[in-house]
């Protein structure tokens, strides 16, 4: 992925940039956070209209396996769970969809250290993986690789 897509995060996170989608990730074991992460993934990228939800693609597990995000994720999920607890619920995963969206909006607006960058990091990592997944791309026109065919219709209106 091109660098301008990740630059906004560099001040807050030590991310790898261009090779994020191809790296082999070493799991660091956050099983307890998996349900919350799946809920975050599906709130951000819920699918529908023929598209799969992010968790159905296993993207929450891929993000959980990114060791460089361990601290960020732990901090962020704890914040979301506290948000839910303040509303009498067991955790973020127990919120309904409007509640989850409100929680993410609140996290994004938070001044607490690491919370906004947590949301940005998940949006970036989940979003890159989601919209690069073949199951998602096939629902969109002109998402295939440039070669070997190129674009014979380049002068015409899109098909």
């Amino acid at each position: 992925m091109k660098r301008r897509n990740v630059l906004a995060l560099l001040g807050a996170l030590a991310l790898g940039g261009t090779t994020l989608l191809r790296r082999a990730f070493a799991p660091f074991g956050q099983e307890a956070e998996a349900p919350a992460m799946a809920a975050v993934a599906d709130t951000m990228f819920p699918g529908g209209d023929g598209l799969p939800a992010a968790s159905a693609l296993g993207l929450h597990d891929r993000v959980l396996a990114m060791s460089e995000l361990k601290t960020t994720i732990t901090t962020g999920i704890a914040w979301l769970d506290r948000y839910a607890a303040s509303r009498g619920l067991a955790g973020f995963a127990a919120l309904d969809e409007p509640g989850r969206l409100a929680a993410l909006d609140a996290a994004f607006a938070s001044n607490e250290q690491g919370i906004r960058s947590f949301v940005l990091a998940l949006r970036l990592q989940l979003g890159l993986a989601y919209y690069s997944d073949p199951a998602v791309k096939k629902a969109f026109a002109y998402t295939g690789p440039p070669q070997p065919d190129g674009f014979a219709d380049f002068q015409e209106p899109p098909a």
């Binding site: 969206l101 949006r123 919209y131 026109a141 998402t143």
Partner: peptide, 29 residues
Amino acid sequence: ELGGLAAFALRAIPGWGRQHAQSVRSLWG
């Protein structure tokens, strides 16, 4: 550097959730 769907979805459309997904679908390309 915007040739791909992922870069478009993340750079051109702010936010997340179903509204984001709908915008990506309607504005891609």
